[in-house]
């Protein structure tokens, strides 16, 4: 029992405990606190139990935003991941061209998110934007992202692809560069086709980085806020109102702190759940193939 006599060591844990408490637990509990109260004025709240949760979960506008968000995230993933892999495969593997390509690719990643939105505003305006004018005048296709929901939706998707595919490319490129030359030689000696090399060497060897890419892109796209806020403001109508914007409107626009807090927690849990599903699926994907 001697070793339990001196408990001073517990004090060493205190700093970590305080940091975690202030950075994560207390803010989260504040949200939990708000989500179960009806706040009349600062310091005056009534306990309402799960009422806000019930209300938020039954809100048809939220259902729409949620569906829109899911479609958006999956569209973006379905394009960015294969495109990123394809671009990474075509990048040169040595020489000065490598640095040139990587710098060019990394440029969109260095631009602040609200600037990305602004760039696309200027780029796509049907009256003065390079893309807008080209599509309307030269191609003769009527395009107006501020008025047509489909145009607006497509513009946001393309903006995201432009902005984030480089991240997938960089990750995949790193994964590809880590494959020893001997693998390609062995495949050549076996007489494997280009497709077989991709399918049985490159893809499995990229699994780790692809998982990171999918998770990062999923979480980021699921929480997307700044770029559509600048570009479309969620419109026209609600056609580009994603979950974050919906939440912000609720919390700041309408000052419905209770429902907004309840919604935040639901939002958080949904991302956690979906990320977990992705992780499990990708981890098991490789194992399933072997059978």
């Amino acid at each position: 029992m001697e070793k339990w006599d001196d408990n001073k060591a517990w004090f060493l844990v205190l700093p970590v405990f305080l940091v975690v408490a202030f950075s994560a637990i207390i803010p989260l509990m504040t949200v939990v606190n708000y989500s179960v109260q009806d706040i009349m004025a600062p310091g005056q709240g009534i306990f309402v139990g799960p009422e806000w949760y019930r209300e938020v979960l039954h809100d048809p506008r939220l259902h729409e935003a949620f569906l829109r968000q899911l479609i958006y995230s999956f569209t973006v993933l379905a394009i960015e991941i294969p495109l990123g892999i394809a671009v990474a495969l075509t990048l040169p593997s040595k020489g000065w061209k490598v640095s040139a390509c990587l710098v060019l690719l990394a440029l969109p990643l260095l631009i602040p998110w609200n600037v990305v939105g602004t760039i696309w505003v200027v780029f796509s305006r049907p009256d003065i934007g390079l893309a807008g004018v080209t599509i309307n005048e030269l191609l003769g296709i009527p395009y107006n992202y501020t008025a047509d929901p489909m145009d607006s939706w497509l513009t946001v998707v393309i903006m995201d692809i432009w902005h984030w595919t480089p991240l997938v490319v960089l990750l995949c490129y790193a994964g590809l560069q880590a494959i020893p030359e001997a693998y390609y030689q062995a495949a050549k000696i076996d007489g494997a086709s280009r497709w077989a090399v991709f399918r049985f060497i490159q893809l499995p060897k990229m699994r780790g980085v692809l998982m990171i890419a999918v998770l990062l892109r999923f979480m980021d796209s699921f929480m997307i806020y700044t770029e559509p806020f600048v570009l479309t403001g969620g419109g026209p109508g609600n056609s580009t109102t994603f979950l974050s914007q919906f939440l912000t409107k609720m919390a700041i626009g309408q000052f419905d702190l209770g429902p907004a807090a309840a919604f935040s927690l639901i939002y958080f849990l949904v991302i956690l759940l979906l990320s977990y599903i992705f992780y499990t699926v990708i981890t098991n994907l490789g194992k399933g193939v072997a059978k």
């Binding site: 020893p180 001997a182 693998y183 030689q185 062995a186 000696i189 049985f200 060497i201 893809l203 499995p204 060897k205 490789g286 193939v289 072997a290 059978k291």
Partner: peptide, 16 residues
């Protein structure tokens, strides 16, 4: 008709 073995352990990662 050649076969080669390398310093590194080269096998197809996703195949049994």
């Amino acid at each position: 008709n050649v076969a080669m073995v390398y310093q590194q352990f080269v096998n197809y990662p996703s195949l049994s």
